[in-house]
Amino acid sequence: MDKYEEFMALTSQAIGILKDMSKRSPYDMASDGMARKTAKSFTTLADVLFGPTDSPRLQRESVALAEDRGLSLEYLEMVEKDAKKLQKRDVRLGRVVDGLRTISITDTQRRITDLEKTLDAAVENDNDRPRSEALLEPFWDLVESTGTGLIRPEYRTVIAIGLDDFAKVSCGKGEDVVVALSDGTTMTGAEFINAAMEGSLGDKLYVGLFHPTAGPVNLYEARFASDKLRTLAMAENLVCPWPDCNVPADRCQVHHIDAHKHGGYTKPSNLTMLCKYHNGVNDDDGPRKKRKRPSPGKPKRGRMRRHRGKVRLHTPGGKLVENTHHVSSMGAMDLI
């Protein structure tokens, strides 16, 4: 078999290659010599096929079909690229398959997020089922009800705003000010004022104190994060800080950067918000020496670390990488 034949044989093994790529960081792949843009493209595709999903059965069937047909990386990238083009605001109704149909809604971030919060409010204490299943009945209750419809929630959601921008908004000069929320969306200065006038911000406004290098400042310590500590952590990281993750802080879990089981304190500088998936894959262990202060150890999949005040992913290859999500760069530490 010459090199061309080896190459053609390799192209039919795209699924196996992507499965192995799903276990690696794109930043470490880039350090191995692959172009960073290419590495991100491949790992993003790998995450679609092997990462967390609301439709695991459909994902398994797609992977099996692609493997059975020996589809190439180029073909799979083309399919994913075409799928991303479906961005226009609409409602799509799928055909009937085995007695089931699918409905897909694409609309503005604000309307979809309000819908999500409305459904979440009905399943707040339902932890036994996958979230996608638990949301189904509340969705139909909302559609079939004759009530008031969508919840217009008070913003217990955290809003991060710098002092300069707050001064502009307060003086009515914040038309161009954009603030970020821990539900993963943004709000203009005008919308901020309207929310305050409508009472959507609640009867209390909380102020968090952040140090440029140490992060959130507080004196409380406890095993579980209090509401105050959680609010500080949300204000700092409005979305999960793991690179390329877009789960908003409202749906994240409080995470100890230095694991509590290894002596990590429950204080603001040792807390961050991670989505359920990344909180699970974060490497809390690794080789440790006996010492008074917890040692970070060498990461496997990667672990969160505070570096120069900001929370970043410490990759297995030793790189420190931050999330580039547009809301992630608008948290409290970025306003200092």
Score class of each variant (00 low, 15 high):
S170K: 04
W140T: 01
S62W: 06
F192E: 08
K117Y: 09
D126P: 04
Y4G: 15
R156G: 13
N270Q: 00
D128F: 09
P299Q: 05
R89F: 11
G94Y: 09
G302S: 07
P299D: 02
D128E: 14
R60L: 08
I257H: 02
S329W: 00
T118N: 04
I193C: 03
K37V: 09
C252A: 00
P299C: 01
K319G: 09
M21S: 08
H314V: 07
W140P: 04
M8L: 15
K81N: 10
W242S: 06
L86R: 15
I161M: 07
D107A: 15
K88A: 04
D54I: 11
P153C: 10
F50H: 00
L181E: 09
T324E: 03
R92A: 04
L320E: 07
I151V: 10
F224I: 13
K310T: 03
L93N: 08
A233I: 01
D227T: 13
T266Y: 07
H255Q: 02
R291M: 07
G286F: 01
I257Y: 06
S329D: 01
Q253K: 10
Q87A: 14
K173G: 06
G263W: 07
V281H: 03
P216D: 00
A121N: 13
A235L: 01
V79S: 01
E191M: 09
N218V: 02
D120N: 10
T43G: 08
D227A: 15
M333Q: 06
K261A: 08
Y265F: 12
P216G: 05
G94D: 13
G16I: 12
K292A: 15
S269I: 05
Y4H: 14
R110T: 14
C245G: 05
E133A: 12
L335E: 00
A214M: 12
P287R: 00
G33N: 00
D68W: 02
T43E: 02
R312T: 12
A121R: 12
F139E: 01
K40I: 11
G199T: 04
R312M: 14
L320M: 08
K168C: 08
V48Y: 02
A64R: 12
G202R: 00
V63T: 03
V177K: 08
P26Y: 04
A196F: 05
N127L: 06
L201F: 07
M333H: 11
M273H: 09
T266R: 04
V63K: 02
Y265N: 14
D128Q: 12
P56K: 09
P243G: 04
W140K: 03
D227R: 14
D68K: 14
R110E: 14
V158L: 06
V177H: 00
R312W: 12
H260W: 15
V247R: 08
G331C: 06
D114I: 02
P296I: 11
